[in-house]
């Protein structure tokens, strides 16, 4: 099973991507998509050392809802600050300590930070312990860090890394 289907989630994702790309739902394309979804991870399995395991699908769903809501909120926030003008901004660099271990979880955290209100992640330290984040308008760096940790990092830890230490 592990040998012939190394990444079941990736297979599913690739099949769905193929169907979206051809933009039609015919039997032939479902077969072709599944075949591609199986073949591509099989051929490139050297690049994917470990399979992704999602431990709490419901938490992931909840996380996605928060994420989408924060994208909209973040865009309105940035739009408001831009229209208000540059004079009022209080930009700062904030160092966020990261407790996540896996690369996928860290990159998801960084991407989430970049799309949510007032923050863009700019640098991950080489030991993958600190993420440097640029905030557009803050005077309380600790509150930003606490918010990121509580809102995004805790659920990500639960979804991807429960039981890993």
């Amino acid at each position: 099973m592990r040998r012939f289907l190394p990444h079941p989630l990736l297979t599913l994702t690739l099949a769905i991507l193929w169907l979206l790309l051809v933009n039609q739902l015919s039997a032939g394309h479902i077969v072709l998509g599944t075949l591609l979804g199986w073949l591509i991870p099989f051929v490139t399995s050297g690049f994917w050392p470990e399979a992704i395991r999602i431990r709490h699908p419901l938490t992931l769903l909840h996380y996605l809802v928060i994420f989408l809501y924060d994208i909209v909120r973040g865009s309105f926030h940035v739009a408001y600050l831009i229209l208000l003008g540059p004079a009022r901004l209080r930009p700062a660099f904030v160092q966020v300590p990261v407790m996540l271990k896996t690369d996928l979880a860290i990159s998801l955290l960084a991407n989430t930070i970049s799309l949510t209100p007032g923050t863009v992640s700019v640098l991950l330290s080489e030991d993958k312990r600190t993420l440097i984040v640029h905030t557009l308008d803050t005077d309380d760096a600790d509150a930003v860090v606490a918010d990121i940790k509580q809102r995004y990092e805790v659920p990500l830890k639960k979804i991807f890394e429960e039981g890993i230490d």
């Binding site: 994208i71 909209v72 973040g74 865009s75 940035v78 739009a79 600050l81 831009i82 540059p86 901004l89 930009p91 660099f93 970049s114 799309l115 007032g118 863009v120 700019v122 640029h134 557009l136």
Partner: peptide, 13 residues
């Protein structure tokens, strides 16, 4: 660094 915010969030949305 402040310019980075606009295109990343507003333009994407």
């Amino acid at each position: 660094y402040t310019r980075l915010h606009g295109p990343t969030k507003a333009t994407t949305l």
